[in-house]
Simulated scan of single mutants.
Amino acid sequence: MFNHTTLIIIVTVIVSLLAWQNKALFNRLIFYPPAVSDGQWYRFVSHGFIHADSMHLLFNMFTLYFFGRAIEGLYQPFLGGYGFIAFYLLAIIVAMIPSYLQNKKNASYLSLGASGGVSAVLFAFILLAPWETIYLFAIVPIPAILFAVAYVAYSIYADKRGGSNINHMAHMWGGAFGVIATIILEPQVLPHFINALLSPSF
């Protein structure tokens, strides 16, 4: 069934492919703090529709496909339909704000990818089904809640360690946005999550 998750994936794939073929377009869309400070605020959104390479794109869209469809179907009406698109785009923006504040004048800082939005979708799903099995790298089975804990811990560790081209803080802030925004939009999800967490079913 065609849904808004599918629409986001199609647009992201098309824009990423076009950017790979056109370096000027790629440079106009990537998140570059000095350009943002000069008024190119659209980069807060546009960076989420380009990716470094095919594996980066595939991993993000693979994750979005499975969890985005679940969220659209289960969190009606707030995170269904156009509400889901708004949730996803806002997550991409919010996830990048801390990085922007830290690198306003850093002419060597660049960031790209949909990970902030994808993390928000993934963590919104975890609120609904904390013990649902997630397949890490599409192979290793792990309960969703344990994945969330490991994901946050690793993001903090990797960010402090540095030496990577991956914006780990954007992942974590995207996940945090997903949790907070979902609870605000669907308050009943919090008691549901607590009850599900205390009553694991394997």
Rank of each mutant, 00 (worst) to 15 (best):
L89H: 07
A91N: 02
A91R: 00
I93C: 10
I93P: 04
I93Q: 05
A95T: 02
M96L: 14
L101Y: 12
L101S: 05
N103H: 14
K105S: 12
S108K: 13
S108N: 13
S108D: 14
Y109I: 03
L110C: 11
L110Q: 14
S111G: 13
S111K: 04
S111W: 06
L112N: 06
A114M: 14
A114D: 09
S115Y: 08
G116S: 08
V118L: 06
A120V: 06
V121G: 00
L122Y: 10
L122N: 04
L122M: 14
L122C: 12
L122F: 14
L122P: 02
A124V: 06
L127T: 00
L128C: 08
P130G: 00
P130V: 00
T133Y: 10
I134L: 12
I134N: 00
I134V: 15
I134P: 01
Y135G: 00
Y135H: 12
F137E: 10
F137D: 11
A138N: 12
A138G: 10
I139P: 01
V140P: 03
V140L: 14
P141W: 09
P143W: 06
A144G: 01
A144Q: 01
L146F: 12
A150N: 14
Y151I: 01
Y151R: 03
Y151E: 01
Y151L: 07
V152W: 13
V152G: 03
A153Q: 12
Y154L: 14
Y154E: 08
I156T: 10
Y157D: 06
D159C: 09
K160W: 15
K160F: 15
N165D: 13
I166M: 12
I166E: 10
I166T: 14
N167A: 11
H171G: 01
H171R: 07
M172E: 06
M172I: 09
W173D: 02
W173A: 02
W173T: 07
W173F: 15
G174I: 03
G174M: 07
G175L: 07
G175V: 04
A176L: 14
F177C: 02
G178Y: 00
V179H: 05
V179D: 02
I180A: 13
A181H: 01
A181T: 00
T182R: 02
T182H: 03
I183L: 08
I183P: 06
L185N: 04
